[in-house]
Computed example of a mutant assay.
Amino acid sequence: MFIVTMTYTAPLEQVDALLAEHVAWLERNYAAGRFLASGRQVPRVGGVILARAESREELLAVLAEDPFQKAGVAQLQLTEFLPTMTSPELESLRVTLG
Rank of each mutant, 00 (worst) to 15 (best):
L76T: 01
A20Q: 15
V95H: 06
V15C: 08
G46F: 04
T79G: 04
Q69M: 13
E80G: 13
W25A: 08
Q41I: 02
L90I: 01
R34C: 08
E65S: 10
R52F: 00
T9C: 06
T86K: 10
T7V: 07
V23Q: 07
V23K: 08
E58Y: 05
G72P: 09
E13F: 04
T7A: 08
G72W: 05
A32R: 11
L26V: 13
H22I: 04
M6P: 00
V15D: 09
L90S: 12
T86P: 02
M6C: 05
A37T: 05
Q41Y: 02
V42P: 00
A37L: 14
G47N: 02
A64D: 13
P83R: 12
G72C: 02
G33T: 07
G72K: 04
L18E: 06
I3M: 13
L76E: 03
H22G: 02
F35M: 15
Q41W: 04
G47H: 08
L19P: 00
R94W: 02
T86I: 07
G33P: 02
R94M: 02
A71V: 03
V45T: 15
P43N: 12
T96E: 12
E27R: 07
L12D: 07
Y8I: 11
T86L: 06
G47R: 00
A31S: 07
E57K: 13
L97H: 05
A32W: 00
R52E: 15
G33S: 09
I3R: 01
S92F: 15
F35W: 06
S87F: 03
V45C: 06
V73T: 01
L36V: 05
A37V: 06
E89N: 07
A61I: 01
E13Q: 14
T84A: 10
L82D: 15
L18S: 03
E65T: 12
L50M: 12
P83W: 02
F35H: 09
P88D: 15
L78V: 12
T7C: 03
M6W: 05
P43F: 06
G98W: 10
L93C: 07
L19F: 11
A31F: 06
L78F: 12
G47Y: 10
D16C: 10
S38M: 04
A31C: 00
S92D: 10
Q77A: 12
Y8D: 15
Q77E: 15
Q69C: 09
P11N: 09
D16Q: 14
T79H: 10
P67Y: 11
R52T: 13
W25F: 11
Q14L: 11
L90R: 12
A61H: 09
P43Q: 05
Q69H: 05
L93G: 04
A24V: 03
E57D: 15
V45R: 13
D16P: 02
T96H: 03
H22Y: 11
P43M: 08
V95Y: 03
V23C: 07
H22Q: 05
P83G: 07
L93Q: 11
G46D: 13
A61G: 09
M1A: 04
L78W: 09
A32G: 07
A32I: 01
A53L: 08
D66Y: 12
L19Q: 05
G47Q: 09
L82T: 11
L93R: 10
Q41K: 15
S92M: 14
T9W: 07
T7K: 14
A24E: 10
E80S: 14
L26A: 03
M85S: 13
L50F: 14
A10C: 11
T7D: 11
